[in-house]
């Protein structure tokens, strides 16, 4: 069973969202997602300052197995990207909820967070998919 921390929010595309305060959220992929991907070898992330709407492509994760798009789970502006992933993409596998984070977004539509899944909702979704 994969690890699903109860203090985070989730979306069906297997990303997690952590509230960092001040209208900023951190985003990464879940433990379940990194397990499906296998060893991550490259992560391509957007530039700081770029604006995205929900569902936009914001990057690509390449694992040994396949390339997967990352979609913006919420609308907003990129305020930080995890530059560590450039040299150490394996952090996505070893610490998906910590050092393996991808980006931080300043939200432009705070109301969108109402549609996010909680840990139980995400766990159910993973169960239904397996």
């Amino acid at each position: 069973m994969s690890d699903i921390p109860s203090d985070l929010k989730y979306v069906a595309s297997h990303e997690w969202i952590r509230d960092e305060g001040d209208g900023v959220v951190a985003i990464g992929v879940t433990d379940h997602a990194q397990d499906l991907l296998g060893d991550v070898v490259f992560v391509e992330l957007p530039d700081v300052g770029a604006d995205f709407a929900v569902g936009d492509d914001i990057g690509v994760v390449e694992s040994v197995k396949a390339a997967s798009d990352i979609y913006a789970p919420l609308s907003g502006q990129i305020v930080a990207v995890n530059e560590e992933l450039e040299d150490s993409p394996e952090l996505v596998n070893s610490d998906p909820y910590g050092d393996g984070w991808f980006i931080k977004i300043r939200l432009s539509e705070a109301s969108e967070t109402a549609g996010l899944l909680d840990a139980d909702g995400y766990a159910e979704l993973c169960e239904a998919e397996s």
């Binding site: 296998g38 060893d39 040994v64 394996e90």
Partner: peptide, 8 residues
Amino acid sequence: PINYGSQV
């Protein structure tokens, strides 16, 4: 077996 943890 596809891997036992990490194929890399």
